[in-house]
């Protein structure tokens, strides 16, 4: 009796497993089919196209959490689509998705867009979020190949990523005739916040044209904060002392606040809080 019961249970269990496998398999197949259709729709996707046609890609990306193989597969499909003859809207969408799951593997394809005036921002949108060093290297390599606002964007991203290897290139850009480029270079040097960038900003602060004085001062303040946070208090204090001589009153106030914070003190008005 017992052995019969065991056999029946075994058969039922096997049947359940087979059914479950079939259900899961068919669900997965249906999802794959939807995903294939979405990638097909991406080829003709444009501004104003119903966004829901791409939803299976959104869903596949969310589902790929902790599934390295699925993530890699999606990344490669997105890269292939990016290299195809698709619209700006489609490339915009692809960069957004790569910003979520992209790795070093997608960087070469995305980096190609960095010099394109229409697509550079979305390339940065992806690269700023991709933690791999290759993403920063791509930004660094694009810097000399860009001009105008596109260059400003690349400079900004190097600052966001705090790329110390870009200090020399950014230092050279402080003298750029384009004020937006010079201001962006100063801001990024401040954000990078190394001793070398502090030296560059100290020189820049002394000779910055009037229209760049606020940008130079702000960069020095940010740099001082970053230096202080890294334990380089002497260098931070030197920057604050430099700015304490500023004729711009709120800059002077900010420098004083910085010095007090560095010394572990607070302003009197702060104590009221």
């Amino acid at each position: 009796m017992l052995s019969i019961a065991k056999k029946v249970t075994g058969l039922l269990l096997s049947s359940f497993v087979i059914n479950l496998w079939l259900v899961v398999g068919s669900t997965a197949a249906a999802a794959d089919e939807k995903l294939d259709k979405a990638f097909e729709a991406l080829k003709t996707y444009d501004w104003g196209t119903d966004r829901s046609v791409l939803k299976p890609i959104d869903e596949a990306i969310v589902a790929s959490h902790k599934d390295t193989a699925a993530k890699k597969s999606l990344e490669m499909r997105l890269v292939a689509a990016l290299k195809g003859n698709v619209s700006q809207a489609a490339k915009d969408f692809i960069c957004r998705q790569l910003s979520l799951i992209g790795s070093a593997g997608c960087v070469p394809a995305v980096a190609e867009l960095l010099t394109d005036e229409k697509l550079s921002h979305m390339a940065r949108y992806a690269l700023e979020r991709i933690p791999d060093e290759e993403a920063v290297a791509a930004l660094r390599e694009a810097l000399p190949k860009t001009t105008g606002k596109v260059k400003v964007g690349v400079i900004n991203s190097l600052g966001v990523r705090r790329d110390a290897k870009s200090v020399e290139a950014l230092k050279a850009l402080l003298a750029d005739q384009d004020a937006e480029i010079a201001a962006a270079a100063a801001a990024s040097l401040g954000a990078i916040g190394t001793v070398e960038s502090a030296k560059a900003l100290t020189e820049f602060q002394a000779k910055a044209p009037e229209k760049l004085q606020l940008a130079a001062a702000d960069a020095c303040l940010v740099c001082a904060e970053r230096l202080a946070a890294a334990g380089n208090k002497a260098e931070a204090m030197a920057l604050y002392k430099l700015l304490a001589k500023s004729e711009i009153k709120h800059v002077k106030l900010a420098a004083t606040r910085g010095m007090l914070a560095l010394a572990g003190k607070k302003e009197k008005s702060e104590e009221k809080k």
Binding site: H65, S99, L100, I101, H121, R124, Y125, L127, E128, R129, P131, K149, V150, V152, G153, N156, S157, G159, V160, E180, A184, A187, S188, G190, A191, V222
Partner: peptide, 19 residues
């Protein structure tokens, strides 16, 4: 959770910048 961390920031369109 580095994947979720990616959603904490976004690249700004130039000339705008948070830094």
């Amino acid at each position: 959770d580095p994947e979720a961390d990616r959603l904490l920031s976004r690249a700004y369109r130039p000339p705008w910048s948070l830094i």
